[in-house]
Design a protein around this nucleic acid. Structure first.
Lengths: 98, 98
DNA sequence: TGCATTAACTTTGTACTGCAAAGTTAATGC
DNA sequence: GCATTAACTTTGCAGTACAAAGTTAATGCA
């Protein structure tokens, strides 16, 4: 039996799951890019990003030159947590379609 | 880009996801069995089962003889919805680990 | 120099939902 | 008749997603 308690609640939410999935595909994403792709209000987006930062999964990189721009990226522990989360998803997929 | 809007909210919740996964592995489960396996309070369990029934994903089968026992099982549309949900999970796993 | 614009926030309010605990109902077995 | 058990219902709380509106600071242009 799969241990559903291990399912990371911070990641397992539609909004944050979509953010994590995007961050996993590229080294970094600008706030505006995330907003455009995910079609979230900026209030909602930043709140999710904050939760992920608070969990230590996401960090930021500010550009000093040019327009004010914030880039978001996965931390090492964010990558690890996401990998574990995906491991559980795989189990569910395997179990569920057997 | 994965369409996260398609992610079925009724299924994508820890409690109900665990129920659906269990129901997918066997033809039916008794209320007590689900409760024991998932370690939920019965109030919580029944609420999730009600949501799943309301969505048309789960139906019940009562035993007429012997002690009062209710069995829960996936409906055809429940199976279909779960299959689609798992399809999306697979996409996430593939995309996320690339 | 000043003004409009834009990015990246913060704050506020609402509506929903997971969850536990306690109470209810009906049937069984002693 | 009484205790026990399954399967609920009800209630209440706390947490959270989300939108909308307001804030701040920096840029680019007139």
């Amino acid at each position: 039996m799969i241990d559903f308690d291990k399912l990371d609640k911070t990641i397992h939410e539609k909004g944050r799951l979509s953010i994590m999935t995007m961050l996993a595909t590229r080294t970094d994403w600008k706030f505006q890019e995330l907003k455009d792709q995910l079609k979230m209000s900026d209030g909602n987006l930043i709140t999710h990003l904050r939760s992920l930062q608070k969990a230590g999964y996401v960090s930021t990189k500010k550009e000093l030159k040019g327009r004010k721009v914030t880039k978001y990226l996965l931390t090492r522990s964010g990558k690890k947590a996401f990998k574990e989360y995906l491991g559980l998803l795989e189990l569910i997929v395997t179990q569920g379609s057997s």
